[in-house]
Write a protein that binds this DNA or RNA. Structure first.
Lengths: 136, 136
DNA sequence: TCTTAATACTACCTTTTAGTAGTATTTAAT
DNA sequence: ATTAAATACTACTAAAAGGTAGTATTAAGA
């Protein structure tokens, strides 16, 4: 019941980039600051560029910055991008899809916590994660 | 953000065995009824025996049944047994452990959903999953 | 124009999770 | 005793996730 390493890394990178308010950040520094293996980090950054969370400036003095305002990038979007799915009708026991008509034995207990989780991820943007008091 | 296949299978198996109220269930039938690959299912059953969720009767006419009352087997115990951890101080971004003193940027948003999830898993027993109206 | 510091691409290696195969052991029924 | 039907054990294979290596491309600065 955890986010994948890739998703965790992606959120932390985006969060840090958001906190730089437009100043370009390069992969080498991000790797050092966030203690994420350089080569793995660049791989994820490239995915984030392709999925249009960030834009990259190539060449010397290049780096990365957000492609849109931090307030418009929701944590749920990041989860979806990296396959860490939390869907409304997802069955917690993996028996197809679940709803009130056709449910697994854990469905009723799972409804409320699931709703809260989804709501939280859907309503939280990178802007909400800004601040210097947090671990990075 | 899902349970592992193994955990999902384990819950479904235990749930089905609980619903048999003491009647022995054998692996072959369980595999057919729950559509879980036979060899993988027996591997998990053996783990469930070792971790004392169920007891096995070997030999012809053998099978499996719960080792204790369904009301005493909590879903959280099953999750713990199979490494699908949901811990109080677990950091959702994977930066060590999180608490109100030392927190990641998602910590505050995560507190409530996490609590609800843990509480639900901790309070739900196999007895609560009984019933014939559910997918199996 | 050459160098250097940056991102991008392709391919590979490692670890974990999921699943399979075959054989040994146990025990009730005949 | 023998057979058949069940669990247990050991070892392997396959797929997915995590991570690494090397080279190509880009562009600012000397």
């Amino acid at each position: 019941m955890e986010l994948s390493n890739t998703t965790q890394y992606a959120i932390r990178m985006l969060s840090y980039i958001a906190n730089s308010h437009g100043k370009l950040q390069n992969a080498k520094e991000l790797s050092t600051i966030l203690t994420i293996p350089y080569k793995f980090l660049t791989k994820i950054l490239t995915q984030l560029v392709k999925s249009e969370f960030i834009i990259s400036i190539r060449g010397r003095e290049g780096g990365y910055k957000l492609a849109k305002p931090a307030s418009e990038i929701m944590v749920l979007d990041i989860l979806n991008q990296f396959g860490d799915i939390v869907k409304e009708n997802q069955c917690i026991l993996g028996i197809g899809t679940c709803d009130s008509e056709n449910k697994c034995s854990l469905h009723d207990q799972w409804v409320i916590p699931k709703e809260m989780m989804i709501k939280m991820f859907a309503q939280t943007s990178l802007e909400n994660l800004e601040g210097d008091e947090f671990k990075i």
